[in-house]
């Protein structure tokens, strides 16, 4: 480890992972640049757009605002870890089916944020959905198909239980 570097150990998408990186790097940068997980996007790097949202211990976190050192010992889930092996998560399936991903650049952030919501509140209504997603910006879809996708996923998950 060089001067000015840090090493952390955490669980990333279910796998024990250790990574070394310059101490100043955000979790977003470490995911994308050191770990090559480019599914998590950057739209502002100021905590204003939600494109970089990931789950840290199940909670949605803007990874551009979190230093990677803070992730030591946590469980981090990114869009790459939402699917169960080859089976897409119901949210992923619904986003693809409903046309909720237009350019798709905002999609990973919406998926992670929506997953945190449905994990906590599987029967969320449209108001609660828009409330939970309020920190995520999409410039393409007009959000309607995103709402529909979250509702469709929630319905599917309810049946499965």
């Amino acid at each position: 480890m060089k001067n000015g570097e840090q090493r952390i150990e955490f669980t990333l998408n279910g796998d024990k992972t250790s990574v070394t990186f310059p101490t100043f790097k955000t979790l977003l940068e470490v995911l994308r640049e050191e770990l090559n997980l480019t599914g998590t996007k950057h739209g502002c790097e100021l905590g204003e757009c939600g494109a970089c949202a990931v789950l840290v211990d199940g909670k949605p976190v803007l990874s551009c605002l979190m230093l990677a050192v803070e992730a030591d010992g946590t469980k981090v889930t990114t869009v790459e870890g939402l699917a169960d092996d080859a089976r897409l998560h119901p949210l992923q399936e619904a986003f693809a089916d409903c046309g909720a991903a237009q350019c798709g650049y905002c999609t990973p952030g919406f998926l992670c944020t929506a997953k945190a919501l449905l994990d906590k509140k599987p029967d969320a209504n449209r108001r609660e959905i828009s409330e939970a997603l309020a920190g995520n910006i999409c410039r393409c879809t007009g959000y309607i198909q995103i709402f529909e996708a979250v509702e469709q996923a929630a319905a599917k998950m309810a049946v499965k239980k």
């Binding site: 599914g39 798709g104 999609t107």
Partner: peptide
Amino acid sequence: EGADKVTG
């Protein structure tokens, strides 16, 4: 390309 966009 839906599957590609929802899996990153």
